[in-house]
Amino acid sequence: MSTPTGPSGFSLPPLRNPVRTIGARSFDFSKQIAVMAIVNRTPDSFFDRGRTFGLKSAIDAALAAAASGADWVDIGGVKFAPGPEVSAAEELDRVLPVVGAVASRSDVVISVDTFRTEVAQACIAAGASVINDTTGLHDPGLAELAAATGATLVITHSRARPRTAYARPQYDDVVKEVVYFLQSRIEMAVGLGVPEQNIIIDPGHDLNKNTLHSLEITRRFDEIARIGLPSIAAVSNKDFLGESLDLPRTERADASLAAATACALLGARVVRMHDVPRSVQAMRMTEAILGLRPPALLRHNMSDVNEQPA
């Protein structure tokens, strides 16, 4: 089978330590783009609106995502935005049985989306291998836990305290400020004992950012990727897509794929998505365009005789 004969027109920023073992799976982020599925066991998530709040629904959704090609399933029990108080005990009641059930039936990577150390610790013991912290290490204990357990740590840019409103965010240069924040938090995590090869970064589309900020991060995602660690594009169905195109939440699937693909072409190595089958197909095609993978087949116009119409 033919392999790419030259580099693509997209110059991907180089990664330090691109080969990672996360849970039971191995990744080479210099050659692949992972798809992270979203399973929110919350009654008030911004997009699902409780679709996977039931225990069976959450477990079935996670296993279906794995069967559809997701490399990774992100399980959360509390939405990022402000809302009714959810105690640590209630959050654990929501996420822990899902983590345990999925870990016992699949080798898919499991992350727990939480800002609480006690929740992350219990989920790691139950089979999760990633702590997905959307609060930018507001609690340094999450980094200490990752260091002690060997878990992968996702560091995300956000400004507000957990579940706190942040009105009219202002940035002189949103991308430069996000890069500075992420670099400083990487240094913090490494200083607390987390190996750099166990860190993944996320610029936090829409998190304490308006639509113009999220669009700027998308078009300049290569500057995030140049930090040198695998980066996540968490764009699926977010409000910056809806506001850009005047679309309700239920009609943002195509816009989500476009934004995720744009980020991947600029260096994102994980995309966090709701529609797993279409996202897997889009990322496999993006890898082919980038020359990271050969075609699965090579038949068209490869015959010694002209093809006859069917």
Score class of each variant (00 low, 15 high):
35 V>G: 03
283 M>F: 11
21 T>L: 14
47 F>E: 05
171 Y>M: 10
241 L>P: 00
176 K>D: 15
185 R>V: 02
60 D>Q: 06
148 A>W: 09
227 I>D: 10
224 I>F: 09
181 F>P: 11
69 G>P: 02
184 S>R: 15
71 D>M: 00
235 V>R: 05
130 V>R: 05
223 E>F: 02
212 L>C: 01
304 D>T: 01
160 A>N: 11
244 S>L: 10
173 D>M: 11
128 A>T: 04
177 E>L: 11
259 A>D: 02
120 A>V: 11
200 I>A: 04
93 D>G: 15
271 V>K: 13
276 V>C: 09
287 E>D: 01
194 V>E: 08
216 E>L: 10
226 R>C: 04
117 T>A: 13
190 V>E: 05
229 L>F: 11
118 E>I: 02
1 M>Y: 12
149 T>N: 05
60 D>K: 10
165 A>K: 14
113 D>F: 14
49 R>K: 13
15 L>T: 08
61 A>E: 11
227 I>V: 14
279 S>R: 05
140 P>A: 13
252 R>I: 00
238 K>F: 13
222 D>L: 02
38 I>N: 15
51 R>N: 13
164 T>G: 07
147 A>L: 08
127 G>T: 12
124 I>V: 05
140 P>I: 14
108 V>A: 14
92 L>I: 09
238 K>W: 11
293 R>C: 02
174 V>D: 03
141 G>T: 09
284 R>Q: 09
245 L>D: 04
220 R>T: 00
128 A>M: 09
112 V>S: 08
55 L>F: 01
126 A>R: 12
127 G>W: 15
141 G>D: 06
257 L>F: 04
39 V>I: 15
299 R>A: 07
202 D>H: 12
193 G>M: 03
103 A>S: 12
18 P>H: 03
112 V>G: 06
98 V>E: 06
120 A>E: 06
6 G>Y: 03
70 A>P: 08
268 A>G: 13
225 A>T: 07
295 P>I: 00
186 I>M: 06
